[in-house]
Amino acid sequence: MLNNLLAASRAWGKRNAEMAALPFLLVGVVLLLSVAIEITSEGNVHFLSVENFGAMAAQIPELGLLSLAMMVTMLTAGINLSIISSANLVGVTMAITMLTFGPGAASAGLTLPLIVLTIVGGLLFSVLLGLFNGLLIAKLKITPVLATLGTMILYEGLTLAITKGYVISGMPEEFLVIASGDVFGVPYALIVFTVAAVVMAYVLQRRPFGRQLYMLGSNQTAASFSAVNIDRVILKTYMLSGLLVGLAAIIMLSRFSSANARQGTSLLLVTVLIAVLGGTDPDGGFGKVLGLVMALVIMQCITSGLNLLGISSFLTLGLWGALLIGVIAYRSYRAKNPGNRPKSVSA
């Protein structure tokens, strides 16, 4: 029984070499932080506590969704630099919609329908923003870095123009429930993220589109000669990225009850960091949702743990960077000193 389990886990590690180290890292981080927190707080604060998990659960969803949005594009050997500015544009548009029609709807008792419509509209808008990226990349053949760099500036500019630089705040109570409400202690937002992650994992591993996406990421020419419709896969990828951004935008708007043009701009690079830490190859073709989720949880543990230790959030930022370099150094060491590499067959 135990042997089977060990063998299975070894096989998993071999198949998933790029994220095999993450479970150990996760356990290590949790242990280290738990002990450190117990000692420094003299047993008054616990890392492994309901409160702390609650705090972590509140922050994971939006960063997780944004990281997924980044990851899908990286799998195609692309990148989406416009995720944050798209999220803000969508957030601001939804906020303005609700503020404009909110009072009228409230008096007519139609607040809930308005919110549903806003959410649907927001998601659609988000997909459209992704589609625009996709069109630039697939049809005009602009490299993804440049195309999404351009739209990043453009979308942020539009948001600034719409808001005139102000913060839009004061969302209806009913809308705030998305971030604050829960079922059996599990926040709605976390459920949204979990469902999104599971669906994404299935789409990537088990849908034809997912396989095509990976293959195209490794060699676009060969994929196109295999009758894969490259343009369509790229368009779908960036629309999917847009959809995930839309979900993140809804959760962010609900959590802060406000939106502005420059919300969370520092998260952009963090999403790249999470994807790469989770084993996504920035050159395309490799990376899994499970790895990304583990990387996300590790990062969140470090953030919350250091917060409990009373350490500046800026030091956390530095530690994230150091962690990434550490993992890359480890992978580069493994690549240069392979233990038991599978033998190649020459016929």
Partner: peptide, 8 residues
């Protein structure tokens, strides 16, 4: 370049 996807 066109036939196989080597890395996969």
């Amino acid at each position: 370049r066109q036939g196989v996807i080597q890395a996969q």
